[in-house]
């Protein structure tokens, strides 16, 4: 039971502090879920792609997945309830008690004006982590240049550059299409003799 409550609590915290949509959760998930060893970083990154290609909000998808991997359907129920409950409680209170007072409240707006740039910085750091995992074999910046060179994978860099070019010419490309192209490139490069 303690394990279930811990999973519930971790995802409750994640749900409570996610401001700015799905990807804003990723730094926190790296912190809390990867930190606890419930998921490895490559698993998390792969799951981001899976979640982009399946319906529904990322938050619910990742919560269900982690709960399921850790403790089956019951685990998934605890993590999913954890991640949605903060939203539910807060929105229920706002829409029944202080709908009009909330929108113009300057303390709320002030706090948000500070949180938004911080979320931006956090997502950027998560993007860097993903880049390091995808192209540099999961080396960390703090490990220095040697680790980066050692983990460097040229095919991955080439794939990334091809994707950037595609994205430049077709700005509104759907994420699922981009992921499919990336998957095809991944298979193609594994067939090449280098």
């Amino acid at each position: 039971m303690a394990a279930f409550l811990e999973m519930f609590w971790v995802f409750f915290k994640i749900g409570l502090f996610t401001i700015g949509g799905g990807y804003a959760m990723i730094p926190m998930i790296t912190d809390q879920v990867v930190g606890k060893g419930w998921l490895s970083l490559p698993q998390l990154i792969d799951f981001i792609a899976v979640s982009e290609s399946t319906p529904g909000p990322f938050a619910v998808n990742i919560a269900t997945f982690v709960g399921m991997e850790q403790a089956g359907v019951l685990g998934a129920i605890f993590t999913t309830l954890g991640v949605i409950l903060p939203s539910f409680i807060i929105i229920y209170l706002i829409s029944t008690l202080f709908y009009d007072r909330f929108i113009g409240n300057h303390i709320v707006q002030g706090a948000l004006s500070g949180i938004r740039p911080a979320v931006l910085g956090l997502i950027a750091s998560a993007a860097l982590t993903v880049l390091l995992s995808a192209v540099f074999g999961g080396a960390e910046i703090t490990q220095g240049v040697g680790a980066l060179i050692e983990g460097f994978r040229l095919p991955s860099l080439i794939i990334l550059l091809i994707l950037i070019v595609i994205k430049r010419f077709k700005k509104k490309i759907h994420p699922i299409l981009l992921i499919s192209v990336a998957a095809a490139l991944g298979i193609l490069f594994s067939l090449l003799p280098f």
Binding site: A24, I26, I123, L163, I179
Partner: peptide, 27 residues
């Protein structure tokens, strides 16, 4: 596994895109 080694590169791009989108909301 080979497909996912490519897909991870796409995730880098998707996240960079999220940063760009969110930066438009910041004063």
């Amino acid at each position: 596994a080979a497909a996912f080694s490519g897909i991870r590169c796409a995730v880098v791009l998707l996240m960079a895109n999220a940063v760009v989108k969110l930066s438009k909301q910041v004063e």
